[in-house]
Each structure stands twice: as structure tokens, then as C-alpha cells.
Design a protein around this nucleic acid. Structure first.
Lengths: 161, 161
DNA sequence: TTCCTGAGTCTAGAATCTAGACCTAGATGA
DNA sequence: TCATCTAGGTCTAGATTCTAGACTCAGGAA
């Protein structure tokens, strides 16, 4: 992997950058852990609290922020003969974070655990392993040297220095 | 997209989870923004500082942590006739974060910016667009309903309740 | 000799985090 | 009827971290 060419300033401002906007919403240790638990199917306050041992006031704040940004939903539900309770399921927007999370997990497997993955994803029908990859429209994996970054002119910032 | 089945506890403990280990290293707003700048080719202390307007002491801490964890390298370099300076290039481990970051960017494009992407990735040779996807060994995209999660028995936690 | 630049450190006040106690409303048990 | 339990929180005080901005330090240039 070649070194990235030196530059002194990002060509897209933070204001226009959807990556930095994403980080503003979920780029915090507890938020990320809450989402991890949510992907496992957790939905209730006390379950989150026990699962990741987060301070209750922090959990409260983070859930409110996740609801505010549309990643989770705050919903009443009622089990037969029980009183109403609250649950926090992922919205479609939240579920769509699955792909970045899988990519992040694969990175962790490779670089933090010597390639040992506690879990793998595979096809129910064919049994083949799934993995996250950068592919073209036909599903062919991108080669590092063949990738070109195109910045939409409306967002491009003048190069300085 | 169907709802995730309810569960009360993650089947893999935080200790074994490479996703949570990853979050421990980079799951912090400033660290994420520093890495974003690094992917654009920034390498120098003052460039990072100006690019994302991070407090200098925080930048100093975060860079040290990134070096400590092997994501960046602290390196002296010398331009012709100049004194030695320091730069912080991404290591291979750091560059490998590119894929999760691209996935995250695509998420942000879709959900935070109405699908408007300041940047796209395409093939230099064929001009085709690249995108991050979950694919099988042959490059075929995974269908949500066909994905099965397999937890390696060594790491599986007993299901409670 | 003074200035400049890159790469930091230091400081004090503000904001946030943490552990843990407490609160509340409905269902349940005695 | 009264106390108890539970889910889903709030409140508090003390510890930690963050922030803006001033300062430092070394090597080269003017």
C-alpha cells in the first residue's frame, strides 16, 4: 500500500463532509457501544445498561440523541397483561449503519486480534462467507492503484499552498 | 428491512468483541476527524490543527495514542536545507481503516445529505463507480434475508433469560 | 541578534463523566 | 390494603476531561 500524497488541507470542508457529520452523531464511545448492542437485538434501557455497563445518565442522554437524529425510535410496547414499557429499536437509518460496523469489525479482527473473528457472516443458501469490500457495479473488487477520488466541483475547495 | 429479533444481552462479551476494541482506539470525535484528515494526505501537527480546529493539547494526546496503537507513525523528515520536522503518516494498519470510513461516508451521503455525495470513487481504467458492499466470494451482493451470523463457539456466551 | 516556524506544553475555567442514591407508576403478592 | 418489585428513568457531588489561548523551545533565515 503506497503512501498517501502529502497535502496541507482537506479538499472538502468539515461543513460539507458527510463523514464528519456522521461522526458528530455517533462518534462517541458510548454511542458506538449502544449501537453495537442494538445490532445484537437489545432494545431496552436496563438491558443496554447491563450489557455495556454505561452510567444510567449517559445512557439516557445518548438514547435521546439517537432518537433525535433518527437512528433509533422511542416506542411504547405492551406485553400481554403487562403495563406499557419503552423500547428503542433501530430505524432503517440505524440499521443501515450495519455495513460500516461490519467493515469496522473486520478491521478489528484483522489488526487487533490476529485475524481471529468471534463471528462470521455467511450465506444461508450457499454457505459462502460474506465480507465487506469496495466493488464496482459488477461486483469486481477494486484494486488500490485503480481507485480515483472524484470531488464534485460544487464542494471542492481551492487548494492552498 | 425487518426488525432485529429481541435479545437481552450481547452474545459476545465486550472483552472478546473486536468492534468494541476498535471503538476504544478510534471511537472519539477528534480521533475520527484526525484520521479523516490523514486520509486526505495531511501529516503535520499544524496542518491537522488548522484543518479541523482541534485544541492543540487534544491533538497532541490523540496523535500519541494513535502512534501507540500502531495506526499512525511518528517520523522525522527533512526537506532540502530545512531542519528536521515531524510527520504522522498512516501505517498500513491505519490505511486499512479506509474501508470502514468509506462505508461510513456512504451512510452519511445517503442519510444526512439526501444522497448528495461531495465525492465519489471510480475506476481509473473502466470509469465505473466503486461502492462498499457486503459480497460473497464471487462478488455477488448479499441479500438481507440470506445473511446468517455464525458465532465461533469459543466466544459464544450462554443465552440468558 | 532578532525573527520565524513547526511542534509542542501549560494553565485556569468550563463542561462532562462517573458511581451511586433516589424517584415514579403500574402490576403483584400477602 | 399495604408493601414490594420493576422498568425507565432523574439527581447529585466529586473526579476527569475539554477548551482557548498563552507560552516554550530549537533550528534556520534575515
Amino acid at each position: 500500500m503506497a503512501e498517501i500524497p502529502l497535502r496541507h488541507r482537506s479538499p472538502v470542508s468539515l461543513r460539507d463532509c458527510n463523514l464528519s457529520k456522521s461522526f458528530e452523531l455517533i462518534g462517541d464511545r458510548w454511542t458506538l457501544l449502544i449501537l453495537r448492542s442494538a445490532f445484537w437485538g437489545l432494545r431496552r434501557f436496563d438491558d443496554f445498561q447491563a450489557d455495556i455497563d454505561v452510567p444510567r445518565s449517559v445512557l439516557s442522554n445518548r438514547l435521546a440523541a439517537l432518537v433525535e437524529s433518527g437512528i433509533m425510535e422511542r416506542r411504547e410496547y405492551r406485553e400481554a397483561g403487562q403495563r406499557a414499557r419503552i423500547e428503542y429499536p433501530l430505524t432503517r437509518m440505524g440499521q443501515a449503519l450495519g455495513l460500516p460496523f461490519m467493515a469496522m469489525t473486520a478491521w478489528g479482527d484483522k489488526w487487533l486480534a490476529d485475524g481471529i473473528s468471534p463471528l462470521t457472516l455467511r450465506s444461508k443458501s450457499t454457505g459462502q462467507k460474506f465480507s465487506v469490500a469496495l466493488v464496482d457495479e459488477g461486483g469486481k473488487r477494486a484494486k488500490g492503484s485503480d481507485i480515483e477520488i472524484v470531488i464534485h466541483s460544487r464542494f471542492a475547495r481551492k487548494r492552498r499552498r
